[in-house]
Amino acid sequence: MSAVTQQEAAPAPSRLRARRRDSSARRASDLVLLVPLAVVLLAIIFPVLWMVYSALRPVQDIAAGVSWSTLLDNISLDAFVRLFEATNFEQYIVNSLLVCLVGTFCTVIVASLAGFALSRYSFRGRGAMFLLLVATQLLPFVVLITPVYLFFSQLGLLNSFPGIVLVYVAMTLPLAVLLMSGFFNGVPRTLDEAARMDGASTLTVIARVIAPLVWPGIVTVSVTAFIAMWEEFLFAQVFLTDDSLKTAQVGLAGLFGEYGTDWGVVMAASTIAAAPTIILFSFLQRRLVAGVAAGAIKG
């Protein structure tokens, strides 16, 4: 294995040492990249910061314009208090987490298998399957609601978590399969062929050989699926009318009234609705870097 890869892949202590040695290599020319990047990142997160800030301003100030001198006066958690008084928002968040975690897990497993098939086999119907997966994405979602509703009411899947999880897995699956097959395509076939020579079964090849190499891809698919499920509103609203089952998006939509809206509460709810995903993925993102390094060792 080459020197560079080893440096990338080295276990933590030696990598730290390497980094310390590297830090002397921080160059002025780095700023050519860092400064514009910092500006771009700031611009990217500004709307979110503003959302959080609006949630913290007292209700009279949200409507009023911004005066820069009194920017941080009267900051309070009032809007959050109003939110939790008026709704079961904490319950909605728990429901959303439950549905999305289970759904994401199922999507990733099913998509990995199908993605591997698309990537590694040239079987009859492969092209058709590819087309079918793309075709599912073509239909505008609103037209699916009525037939799926009828179908679910026959199966008794309305107002139940398994029902909505099934919808969400179906909804995220096509993209997940396509992405997974794209990531698998990036892995040289020689690797799994070598493992097969050693007598490994297909599932073992996927789980032990290929998966570690496409870790970033798996995380990407998970995050993509999770977020698509997390922000889905249409199906959740139609299928979950029972208050104890509602998801965060349905709760959120309930705050936009026909006659006026308490913007502080909306922003507070949004902040809370975004928080779990941000926390979860900051954590995953750190793991992701570690995952790549570990994958490289094995490779």
């Binding site: 980094r19 590297d22 830090s23 290599a25 921080r26 780095d30 860092l34 990047l37 990142l41 990217i44 997160i45 709307p47 979110v48 959302m51 995050v223 977020i227 997390w230 922000e231 509103f233 965060a248 998006q249 959120l252 939509a253 936009f256 909306v266 922003m267 949004s270 609705a273 975004a274 995903t277 941000i278 993925f281 900051s282 993102q285 750190r286 870097v289």
Partner: peptide, 22 residues
């Protein structure tokens, strides 16, 4: 080198965490 990789990657993802409606 500047130890900001994790931070930068997290920040980039943030808009995605905000529900479309919001």
């Amino acid at each position: 080198r500047w130890k900001v990789r994790g931070l930068a990657r997290t920040l980039v993802l943030i808009p995605w965490m905000v529900p479309q409606v919001v």
